[in-house]
Structures are given as C-alpha cells and as structure tokens.
C-alpha cells in the first residue's frame, strides 16, 4: 500500500473537510452558485462530502438578468438532479423596485449591483455562512483570503484584521447578524480545477468548449453579441471560433479564440496560456485594486 494521495485527491479531501465543517458549525449555510465551472466543482464536492445524503443546504444564484441562456439551462438541470432548493436573487427585480440604479454607457455592467442583491438575499434567508468558489490564484486580493472569512453586520470584509487559520482548526464563531464567507477551493489553481473535472468526468456547460459564436472586439477583449450590450458604431460582429474561460455576465465576460473542444484540449490550452483567466474580465480592469475594493464592500 502506497500511503500518499496525489495533489488532486489531497485538494479534494481538504475541500470536503471544509464543506463538512460548514455543515457542522453553522445553522443555515447557503452555496453561492454562479453557473461557472468553479461553482459546478463546489456543488460536485458538496455532493461527495455528504453522500449518500443530499447536500444539506440550498444554492443561491444572483441572477443579473444578463446570463448566458446555456448557463441557466445547465443550472436548472443540475438542481433537478441533486434535489436541492434553488434561490434566485434577481438584479432586474432590484432595479425595477428602485433599490439599485443601473449603470449606463458603453461599458455598463451589472457586476457591482450583484453585491447589493447578494447581501439582501443573505439577510432575507438569515444565512450565516455563504459558500463561494473563489480561488486564491485568481487575483492578488484573493491570495490573502481565508477559508473561513468573517463579515461584519454590513457584510464587509476587513482584510487587515483577519483571523489566523492554523492546522485543521477553523473558527466560525460570530455575533448575531454577522456571517461568514467560506471558500473551500481556495488552494486550487485553474489547472487543478480542469484536471480534476476531467478525471472525474464532471458535466459542464458547452460554453467552456470551443464553438462558433457572433462576437466583436472592444479594448482587445472579445465579447459575445447580445441584447445586453451597447455596441459602438465601429464595433462590428463576426462569427468566431471561441470558448469562455470563466462564465459571468454576457456584458463583461470575454471570450478567447480557441479550437479546444474537449477537456484534454482545454487543459493543454490552460497549461500553455500566458494570460490569467480573469484577464478577460473587464470588471477587474477598472483599477489595480478593483477586486479588493469590491470585496471589502461584500462582493464574492
């Protein structure tokens, strides 16, 4: 018997430990589901952690109204198969109710509005732990994020005053009205996620695989044509062979030219690529610390 785990099995074991710890330490957890591969991985790991029982918490999707239709279809089928409850927080509803004001202009995005809707849903559902699929390799502010990340009663993150995390010991203690953000896949890299999804044969939305789509270029980023985006006169659409490395809003998620139509080819592409996956996200490009600023105010 060879007493060692490979890196993916060790990461899996760590994430399952965190998921079970959340079920044990919190009264009312919820899993934030975006439809992207990281939240699909999270859901899959949760299925493993509580097998043969069902996942003991609902999924929460903050719906900007600007989603890829393929992602919504995938979400609904997954929820059906798992037999878990899905809560949808609607940004469109919040705009219609006058709770938030929509950005205007060519680079308008509903990304920032998600925070308000998320915090409202967490409050409404009295959730004390919100599980997210953020990874530390994604962005430099996230490199300092904890597995158990404390949020005050306003949902704010205080990066300079975080609880140290040692060994296998996670402190989820809090006062009433406060909550935790929990990041079970903190230690996974983009490549780890892809390798694991392939080895485990996990289903993914077809958006991740190369396909032909009507797209146009803006500031060097390829965007999918949709009703949610205001094109400038010189921005002309053409059919391109693309795939998406992350799935967010149609209005701000960049596609990349690719012919990777299998997981094997995607991994090869990821392993040799020279741009980070959030490099295609125009929401991160607003300033050098845009992620940190959004996180402090309660973003994922």
């Amino acid at each position: 018997m060879n007493y060692h785990l490979n890196h993916l099995k060790e990461l899996e074991s760590e994430s399952i430990f965190i998921l079970r710890e959340v079920a044990a330490q919190f009264q009312n957890p919820v899993l934030m589901f975006s439809g992207g591969k990281d939240s699909i991985l999270m859901t899959y790991l949760a299925e493993k952690a509580f097998f043969p029982a069902k996942i003991p918490f609902p999924l929460l999707h903050v719906d900007t109204g600007h989603n890829f239709p393929e992602a919504i279809k995938f979400r609904d089928e997954l929820v059906e198969r798992l037999g878990v409850k899905l809560i949808v927080g609607s940004v469109q509803q919040a705009i219609d109710d006058g709770k938030v004001v929509e950005e205007t202009g060519f680079n308008a995005s509903r990304n920032g509005l998600q925070t308000a809707v998320l915090l409202e849903e967490l409050e409404k559902g009295k959730f004390d732990a919100a599980l997210g699929g953020a990874r530390r390799d994604e962005e430099k502010a996230r490199a300092k994020e904890r597995f158990f990340s404390h949020r005050d009663e306003f949902g704010q993150w205080d990066p300079k005053n975080q609880r140290p995390e040692l060994w296998n010991l996670f402190n989820g203690k809090k006062n009433i009205g406060e909550h935790f953000r929990i990041f079970p896949i903190s230690n996974w890299t983009e490549l780890d996620v892809w390798q694991y999804l392939m080895l485990e044969k996990v289903d993914l939305p077809n958006l991740y695989y190369a396909h032909t789509r009507s797209c146009f270029k803006r500031d060097g980023i390829i965007l999918a044509d949709s009703d949610f985006i205001n094109k400038r006169p010189e921005e002309v659409c053409e059919d391109m062979q693309v795939r998406f490395r992350t799935i967010g809003d149609m209005s701000c998620t960049g596609a990349s030219l690719s012919d990777a139509d299998t997981l094997e080819k995607i991994i090869e592409e990821v392993a040799t690529t020279r741009i980070t996956e959030r490099g295609g996200r125009s929401d991160d490009k607003r300033s050098e610390t845009s992620m940190e600023d959004r996180k402090i105010h309660g973003y994922f």
Binding site: H7, R136, K140, A141, K144, P159, D192, T289, E292
Partner: peptide
C-alpha cells in the same frame, strides 16, 4: 507580485500570509 493588499503596496511591506501557487510536472 506577492504583496496583495492595497495598504501593503502603499507601504512596500507584507503584513499578512499570502499564498502562492506553482507547479512542475512532478509536484504542485
């Protein structure tokens, strides 16, 4: 590359634990 938080970049010091990842064919 290794100083993630705004205040750290301003002061040029590391005040927290930062996690970095790299891999070779043998190990992560």
């Amino acid at each position: 590359l290794t100083d993630g938080l705004k205040s750290e970049r301003e002061q040029g010091i590391t005040i927290d634990v930062a996690y970095r990842y790299f891999a070779t064919p043998k190990r992560k």
